[in-house]
């Protein structure tokens, strides 16, 4: 997809988002949902870049999100670091973790990367709950309950000031989306297409798979860590329950709905799925069941998601040549 088209889609999506507070700005509940849409859009996009774009089958995205969130939360609570700074530090920390995980992974093929990253995910939960976590200040089973909101020049961005907070979130989310867009469309992007198509050939041209993949790990972990930290400061509360498979699968659904590898599909996927998930809230416990079934159905029926569907319509209509 051309840069122009991508930019237009992102512009339209975020533009519509930007206008929504005019309609529902005073409905706190809906504003919360919109903010979540924006946050998850970043996570889903990062994951899409890893899996669909760079072809790295990583299952660690949620783990990095949680790492960033906890890091910033702990820094803010235990060490009284101001949130803006702690978010940045958390981002860098998560990027570091991303590199650490990436180093062994990248020598391996498909299932092994998924295994290691999923293992990180699974190992994170008991770590946070257990003694190591408590020692670091994770709050063990209880989690973190009193994360301070972002504070810029004395103005507190919390759910008390929901509309300005929304716009701040929009800005952060949009910034991340644009960074991702430029990465995809840059030389990195071409390198990855080459690597995905035929790794051996690309490497013979001097494209170092290892270097690029590690950079992707670092970048996506950085962005995910930042948005995770942001989430912590907005929501105020963190718990290890975020590591349940529930969230994991919802993110996967977002990518599948949007179209794996078809950025910016995951942004739209995130918006749609968060909205849909809220609509499904009355289903209670059956929501997760439905999510699981949805993943299965989507993988089978809609291999390229919403983006794929539209791309196909567009290419069917356009004259070939």
């Amino acid at each position: 997809m051309r840069l122009k088209h991508m930019a237009i889609i992102i512009g339209v999506a975020y533009g519509i988002m930007a206008l929504l507070p005019l309609l529902v700005g005073d409905i706190r509940f809906l504003m919360n949902i919109l903010i979540m849409c924006l946050i998850w859009a970043v996570v889903a996009s990062c994951w899409d870049v890893m899996m669909g774009f760079a072809g790295i089958f990583s299952f660690g995205q949620v783990a990095f999100f949680v790492m960033g969130a906890y890091c910033s939360g702990i820094l803010a609570i235990e060490h009284h670091v101001t949130p803006v700074l702690s978010i940045l530090i958390a981002g860098l920390f998560t990027a570091g973790m991303g590199v650490l995980v990436g180093l062994p992974c990248l020598r391996l093929a498909g299932p092994y990367v998924a295994l290691v990253t999923f293992g990180v995910h699974m190992a994170l939960q008991p770590t946070l709950r257990g003694e190591i976590g408590i020692a670091l200040g994770s709050g063990g089973s209880v989690g973190l309950l009193t994360i301070p909101p972002i504070n810029i020049f004395g103005y507190s961005f919390s759910s008390a000031n929901i509309v300005p907070t929304f716009y701040l979130t929009l800005l952060v989310s949009l910034a991340c989306a644009l960074v991702i867009m430029f990465v995809i469309k840059s030389y990195w992007g071409v390198a990855f297409l080459a690597l995905k198509d035929s790794q051996d050939f690309a490497m013979s041209l001097g494209i170092s798979a290892f270097k690029y993949k590690l950079m992707v790990f670092a970048l996506t972990s950085f962005l995910t860590g930042i948005i995770g930290a942001y989430y912590g400061h907005f929501y105020g509360v963190l718990s290890f329950r975020m590591l349940d498979l529930d969230l994991f699968s919802i993110l996967m659904v977002m990518m599948l709905v949007g179209g794996l590898g078809h950025y910016p599909g995951s942004i739209i996927g995130a918006f749609l799925v968060v909205a849909g998930s809220e609509l499904m809230a009355p289903l209670g416990a059956y929501r997760a069941v439905t999510m699981g079934a949805l993943v299965v159905i989507l993988v089978l029926a809609l291999p390229n998601g919403v983006m794929g569907f539209f791309l196909k319509r567009a290419s069917d209509r356009a004259p070939s040549g």
Binding site: F57, D246, V253, M291
Partner: peptide, 22 residues
């Protein structure tokens, strides 16, 4: 297809886990 199978079975895992819970 190997990746797609992993994703599908992951969805299935979620489906079954939550089904058991319910």
């Amino acid at each position: 297809w190997e990746n797609k199978v992993m994703m599908l079975t992951l969805g299935l895992a979620l489906f079954l886990t939550s089904l058991y819970t319910v």
